[in-house]
């Protein structure tokens, strides 16, 4: 197997998902860099260990720092700004991941009723993931 060719330019589902994969991948790197930089600015160098810092980098949720040396997570570590960062992260990660799964599956399953069924199933999983993620972020 080799990698798939890039889809042709134009307003098609494959092309939109192709470009979305690149944009969301880069955006997640930017979100991680912004998150870790602000964590250092808030004093992570002396208050957090490496593992907590990496967890925070992957996903800036206050439950990821509550067991580290940070005295009070409500002071800057849990607010609307981080909720927006988390919502962006869960949306990009979920869509990027489920679309990646679709790409892998469709390399092995040709156009058939099984592909239609799998697309429906993956869409359902994606919707479920984003809704559960939003619920967790907004109620924690």
């Amino acid at each position: 197997m080799t990698s798939r060719p890039a889809p042709r330019l134009g307003f098609s589902f494959e092309y939109i998902m192709w470009i979305f994969t690149r944009i969301s991948g880069f955006s997640m790197l930017v979100l991680a860099v912004v998150g870790v930089s602000l964590a250092f600015w808030m004093g992570a160098r002396t208050q957090m260990d490496m593992i907590a810092l990496l967890r925070w980098t992957f996903f800036p949720n206050s439950f990821h720092v509550v067991n580290s040396g940070v005295p009070d997570v409500t002071q800057g570590w849990a607010n609307a700004f981080w909720q927006i960062m988390e919502i962006l992260m869960i949306f990009f990660a979920g869509t990027h991941g489920i679309n990646g799964l679709r790409n892998v599956l469709e390399d092995y399953i040709g156009p058939s009723w099984a592909r239609v069924f799998l697309r429906g199933l993956l869409f359902g999983i994606w919707l479920f993931m984003v809704i559960v993620g939003l619920y967790i972020i907004l109620t924690i």
Binding site: A93, G94, G97, G100, L101, V104, I125, M129, V132, G133
Partner: peptide, 13 residues
């Protein structure tokens, strides 16, 4: 990529 999809969804659940 597949490992991350499995990890993230299990961790969320």
């Amino acid at each position: 990529g597949l490992a991350i999809v499995i990890f993230v969804s299990m961790h969320m659940l």
